[in-house]
Design a protein around this nucleic acid. Structure first.
Lengths: 145, 145
DNA sequence: CTAATAAAGGATAAAAAGATCCTTTTATAT
DNA sequence: ATATAAAAGGATCTTTTTATCCTTTATTAG
């Protein structure tokens, strides 16, 4: 569904968000080991997320990554996915046709947009805050990757 | 959503199915140009689909690919997707975690399985026959890739 | 000011997906 | 039987994605 970059990105952001609610800033090593992702690759993804103002980074000793409290209710999963995977997941045809829309639909078009709209809706409706506070086993799942 | 192989495969199968209802067997060149896919790559995909008894191939002059009439109501989109992309689309965690299920769910788990189940249901419920006969502009869309 | 720490960023490498080429096998018409 | 047409299959190449390494920049404590 999502690229590896996007999966790592989402995991990283959710983890950072979680720690941020505890007023804790986290470094790359901590993040990568918590979410079980390759460190250097995760660094690249965090750079992108930093440039796109999803996370805030602080350089130097005692530095790390964090997300401002007020941003938790603003940032949606959709934004993160769009930054890391673009919008092909929202706009792409199921059969990969360039020209496929309501006017000239592929044979799967109408069945497909239904699914895609559900996904889109879900990603747009869920902010980091929502994800953190409907988590059934908060802070626990990370240990089981 | 799907890999390129799977997109080409679905397009090829739908095209072959369409032609098969007209009692017409089609060759690789015809298929690749109709569905706008790379010929040699499409050949590989058709090999896989032949081995998996989705399409029937006939070698030699006047050969080509076809789908038996009675198979049209049996073959679902789901089968084709599973053959070409495996079942990660059905079973994989949205965040890419190995261990993620109802018992130890990732933070997106319950929101995700809803989407995935919709997709699964759609692919399982639609046979080639269904796709062919709910196509709004039958035989036309291929020309517009 | 210096040493140390941590993120940023450039360059490169490895793996996977996508695509092509060429030879072999099978079947058909003449 | 032979020439030909078409799919099967092996080998190889290209591109994209995933991943690593190393140098530079920024920040902090002492």
């Amino acid at each position: 569904m999502f690229s590896k970059s996007c999966e790592y990105g989402l995991r990283a952001v959710i983890f950072i968000a979680e720690q941020s609610t505890l007023q804790t800033k986290v470094g790359l090593k901590t993040i990568a080991s918590a979410i079980n992702s390759p460190e250097a690759f995760t660094a690249k993804i965090l750079q992108i997320l930093t440039r796109n103002n999803i996370v805030t980074s602080i350089k130097g000793p005692y530095g790390g990554f964090m997300i401002e409290e007020y941003r938790l209710k603003e940032i949606t999963l959709s934004e993160i996915v769009q930054i890391l995977d673009g919008d092909k997941i929202y706009t792409g045809c199921g059969l990969g046709l360039k020209q496929c829309d309501d006017k000239s639909p592929c044979p799967l078009h109408f069945k497909f947009i239904e699914i895609r709209n559900n996904l889109k809706k879900m990603l747009e409706e869920n902010t980091l805050h929502d994800i953190l506070f409907t988590d059934t086993e908060k802070n626990v799942f990370w240990l089981k990757t």
